[in-house]
Design a protein around this nucleic acid. Structure first.
Lengths: 235, 235
DNA sequence: TCTTAGAACGAACAGCGTTCGTCGCAAACA
DNA sequence: TGTTTGCGACGAACGCTGTTCGTTCTAAGA
């Protein structure tokens, strides 16, 4: 039932989706997921929206601001249960694990969080939740705020570290993360074995132990150290 | 007493300092200290050595490799005492504080460490020292290696966060770090106060506590959490 | 209907890391 | 001693980056 547009009718210029901060953020996030953080440039986002890079600056003042917006958008995917101070350790642990899992999906976004005190709506939501949990558990507000700060740093740092590995893997053309990490550990182990045993007795003696454990095991180990430390302060 | 060079004498081409990996690393480090990490580019290093950027690639395969070399050079400045397992907490704490202080001086170098498992000679020296200290204190080699890994991540992450703040300060043209951080805390505090108190009771209620404490206090707090966690594993 | 605010955008700027191909020196070889 | 060869130095360029300037065009308000 469609008919050709009459030629005298001036061609509609805005057939493509209207530019807005939301579609820009969403497009940026999509590029991040599909092609990695090193592919996320203003030009690339503009290209995906079929326009030039200059057009983005009407809705986003910076690449930095764009990344902050994307980061907060990602934080929104973290699910937070009703805080129950009676089992704060379990809830804090669950939050940390989920936050890492989600952040790990989105490559370089974690870098933004390491640098900024996040102030987006979802960052506030998470901060309020953690403060409620820890203060409810009996921690002083000052200690709780420090704990929130340090835990956030730990999570984002680990996510950032992971994203760097992922970027290297992508650059090397490998697609299987397991194989990549295995090869990585093997290379380190082989190198350690070549060291002079008299100057590095521990590094050469405990090669197996030092290269054991995947990223998750290491993350959980550090997380447990932090939570145990918090526990000690509550007693 | 200097006389003009005889014209028939072929002009000495290599009057300027011979290029080598060492002078490149040293030059890069100097730029890092004086002008910050964002000013450290291959072109800039080449310019300082009065040559073109292409000349550097005969001695350094990458910018990444250059940063790794600089990072290890910086690690060399960390002083390590004879390990005494009887007071491992004190020694670990002292090491962490000094490492942070030194890393904080050199801006973005910390970023390299977050991404890599450092394998330079000085990184090995530090790793061996920490392993000896913790295993000597009774920790299992596997736990010790995890602890070393996590502590290194924590230190470099904090240094990286600090360097980002420093870069922002530099970009804003501020020269006094104290004034900058104070202004930063005030801005955050003011923002928190404007939030709706019903949805963010803790953030709005504990504004003072949340913005209190400088970077060092926060670093030491997290460090204590980690060390306390390690202690608990030894008992 | 006319005015005007602001989004869209082409073009350009200054910078980046890296590579290619050439040049010239110095040591190794005949 | 004469010739060859390997390699550091390096000018020029490629393709990319974030960002800005100045212009065009659209759409809403007066």
């Amino acid at each position: 039932m469609t008919v050709p547009t009459p030629p005298w009718r001036t061609a509609r210029k805005r057939a493509k989706t209207q530019l807005s901060q939301d579609v820009i953020v969403e497009t940026g996030l999509r590029i991040l997921v599909t092609d990695g953080s090193e592919a996320l440039s203003m030009r690339r986002v503009a290209q995906a929206l079929d326009t030039g890079p200059a057009s983005l600056y009407a809705h986003v003042s910076n690449k930095e601001e764009l990344l902050e917006l994307i980061f907060d958008r990602v934080l929104g995917e973290i699910h937070l249960p009703e805080p129950d101070p009676a089992q704060w350790q379990r809830q804090l642990r669950g939050y940390a694990m989920e936050a890492l899992r989600i952040l790990a999906q989105y490559g370089d976004v974690a870098r933004i969080a390491v640098a900024n005190v996040p102030t987006g709506p979802n960052a506030l939501r998470v901060g309020e939740w953690m403060m409620g949990l820890l203060v409810g558990a009996g921690m002083s507000p000052r200690e709780a705020s420090f704990a929130v700060d340090r835990l956030a740093l730990y999570i984002t740092a680990d996510a950032f570290e992971g994203s760097q590995h992922f970027a290297r893997m992508r650059a090397a053309g490998v697609t299987d993360p397991g194989a990549y990490m295995e090869e990585f550990a093997t290379r380190i182990a082989d190198y350690y074995r070549t060291l002079p045993a008299d100057r590095f007795p521990h590094l050469t003696g405990y090669v197996e132990e030092m290269t054991a454990g995947d990223g998750d095991a290491r993350f959980e180990f550090g997380l447990d150290l932090l939570i145990t430390g918090m526990e000690a302060r509550l007693r």
